[in-house]
Amino acid sequence: MRGETMWGLVTGASGELGQAVSIALAKRGIPLYLHYHLAGDKLQGILRLASELGVPAYPLQADLRDPQQVHRMFGQMPVKPLLLVNNAAVDHVGLIHDVTPEQFDNLVHINVRAPFFVTQAALPAMIQAKYGRIVNLSSIWGLTGSACEVLYSTTKGAVLAFTKALAKELAPSGISVNAIAPGAIEGGMMNRFSPEDVQEIVEAIPAGRLGRPEEVASLAVYLLSPEAGYITGQVISPNGGWYT
């Protein structure tokens, strides 16, 4: 498959990490399907860049909590993607005592069930091609856990187990599956913290700064490349030495 043009699908492409990954892929000439749920306006910069580069890029709306909408989304793709980035996610901050069943279900549906069924829908084309690259976005809290983010940590830990099990199942089909578990990254979920809280986090990071979305994106692009075919079932955590 090295010499063929392969399409990529990025879920949650309207988020800051999703945008960074999408831009990095577009710059490498990868045709893209850009999934969004509600914030389609945030895709305009990516679509404009892709147009300037002559790279096909199409926005696709779906609520990934609904497997029927996942299948509808794949039905809109004339060429099925062989590169998949499961990035769409939501977080939750609060004590476990305050988590409602509705909040629990929402996070599990978006952070765990959605990547499961998106991947399931993507696999027939990959298996037929005997080639595929899947990158799942988890979190450092999926590795270490975090107080006051027990629910979020639980779902991101599930993503890691999903990654490792799926990698073993799909390796004979030429499909790699890896996870990225970022530490504290500029923007996105870090925006909920006060400047003082952010400074306290930075002081705990040996690198002395937050990570940049572009640094996570560059790792994702490599894991999606033909050269990364022998890397599978791995969890890589770009975190500036915060947790090792």
Rank of each mutant, 00 (worst) to 15 (best):
V177G: 01
R28F: 13
L160E: 15
P195N: 00
S218F: 02
L53T: 06
G187N: 11
Q128D: 11
Y243K: 04
V118S: 02
I175T: 02
A207T: 09
A181V: 07
S218G: 06
F117K: 01
G94R: 10
G45W: 04
N136T: 12
P59S: 09
V118E: 09
F116L: 15
I127E: 04
G241E: 11
G18P: 08
P238D: 02
T155P: 09
Y33V: 03
E102H: 10
H71C: 10
T100A: 14
K42S: 15
A129Q: 10
A24C: 08
P67Q: 05
G157V: 00
L17I: 11
E203N: 15
S51K: 14
P124C: 06
M6T: 12
G45Y: 11
L83G: 02
T244K: 12
L60D: 06
A207Q: 03
L47D: 08
F162E: 10
K130T: 13
E196C: 04
I23C: 10
A24G: 05
N86I: 06
G211W: 02
E203V: 13
G208N: 12
I30P: 10
A204G: 14
K156R: 01
N87V: 08
M190E: 13
V70F: 04
K27I: 11
A228S: 15
L25N: 09
P56Q: 07
K156H: 02
V79W: 07
M73N: 02
P226K: 06
V10D: 07
A122H: 01
N191T: 07
E215D: 07
E203T: 13
A122V: 14
Q68P: 00
G15L: 12
A20E: 06
L210R: 07
V216R: 03
A89D: 00
E200N: 11
A114N: 05
P213I: 14
N87S: 02
H92M: 13
G54E: 07
M189L: 09
P59H: 04
L49W: 00
P78R: 03
Q128L: 11
A62I: 04
S22M: 14
I46Q: 07
L84H: 00
A161F: 09
V150A: 14
E149A: 10
T100M: 12
Y58M: 14
L219V: 07
V221W: 05
T155H: 06
I96L: 09
E214P: 08
V112F: 10
I175C: 04
S14K: 13
L210Y: 11
V221A: 03
N111H: 11
A207H: 03
K156N: 01
Q120I: 07
L38C: 15
I23P: 05
N111Q: 10
I110E: 11
S176A: 09
T244H: 14
V177H: 01
I175F: 05
S218P: 08
V55M: 05
A57P: 12
A39R: 15
E4T: 14
P56R: 06
A220W: 01
E227Y: 13
N86M: 02
I30G: 08
V159G: 13
E169I: 06
G29Y: 11
P238I: 05
G211Q: 12
V55R: 08
L219N: 05
Q68C: 01
R192F: 00
H37S: 15
V150K: 08
Y222L: 02
G132I: 03
L9I: 05
V55S: 00
Y58S: 10
K164E: 09
